[in-house]
Computed example of a mutant assay.
Amino acid sequence: MTVYRHPSAIVDDGAQIGEGSRIWHFVHVCGGAVIGRGVTLGQGVFVGNRAVIGDRCKIQNNVSIYDNVTLEEGVFCGPSMVFTNVYNPRALIDRKSQYRCTLVRRGATLGANCTIVCGVKIGAFAFVAAGAVVTRDVPDHALMLGVPARQAGWMSEYGEQLDLPLAGEAQVVCPHTGEHYRLAGNRLSKVPA
């Protein structure tokens, strides 16, 4: 399986791109980027020199994955969502030495037009709603809504909202997969089969 690269895409020398990845119209991948297997980069995507994209991620149109952003396996980035790399940017002040690292854990979904402020960690299988602005760390499986984003619920690995309180002791079954989840305090985890 080879890498598909649209003729309009620019991939700088040195970029590492895994097998089966697809790079669409007007994409620019910088030479230091590391991209896993089976990744899709939609139209107009930019990938920086110190960006890392895990296997089977899907990056929709017009998303920039800047330096110091790491996406683990299976992350979905919706159209025109935004990562920042400097907390307090100013055009007249060079702050390239102040880039903050952003980590998006396995299976997370970042909705269209949401913003992820640099320096945060998005938990595994978390779901950030369209238009939300994330300014602090997000727990695994959390559903985040609003500006600034606040937790509004819990999500299964399948992407189904689970009928659980935000905190406490409870168990629930995902209606689509039959997988069991346990809430303990303010942490949700999948119960091994």
Rank of each mutant, 00 (worst) to 15 (best):
G48F: 00
A33C: 05
C30P: 01
V173P: 12
T115S: 01
C30T: 15
A184L: 14
L162M: 13
G42A: 07
A15W: 03
V147D: 06
P89A: 08
C77G: 02
F125Q: 01
G168A: 04
V82M: 14
V134C: 00
C30M: 15
A184Y: 13
V128L: 10
G146N: 09
T40L: 09
V172A: 07
G159T: 11
L162Q: 01
G74D: 07
V173L: 11
D67P: 12
R136V: 08
G168M: 06
E73H: 08
T84A: 15
T102F: 04
Y99P: 04
G78E: 10
H25L: 13
A184H: 10
I10L: 14
G36Q: 01
P79D: 07
R136S: 06
C174L: 12
E169A: 06
G36K: 03
K96C: 14
P192C: 14
Q151A: 00
D163F: 15
V133G: 07
N186R: 15
S97E: 15
E19C: 13
D94I: 02
S80L: 11
Q60G: 05
G111Q: 09
A9I: 04
V69G: 01
S80C: 12
W24R: 14
V147L: 10
F76H: 01
P89Y: 01
Q171W: 14
V39R: 05
G159E: 06
W154L: 04
P175C: 13
D137H: 09
T84D: 06
G159W: 04
A51S: 05
L164G: 10
G107F: 09
L71A: 14
F127M: 08
T102I: 15
W24L: 09
C77T: 08
N49E: 03
F26N: 14
I17Y: 09
R95V: 03
R56C: 13
V173N: 10
I116E: 00
T102D: 07
L110K: 07
H6I: 11
G119I: 05
G119D: 11
L110N: 10
V133M: 11
G38D: 05
S8G: 07
T109Q: 02
R56P: 06
L71E: 01
C174P: 09
E179K: 15
S156E: 07
R136E: 02
A130R: 03
P139G: 11
P7L: 12
L162W: 07
I35W: 10
K190W: 08
S189Y: 04
R95E: 10
E19G: 06
A112F: 13
H6P: 05
G48D: 03
E73Y: 03
N61F: 07
V82A: 09
V75N: 00
S156Y: 00
I116S: 00
A9K: 03
P139A: 05
A33Q: 11
A108D: 14
T102R: 06
G159S: 02
L143V: 15
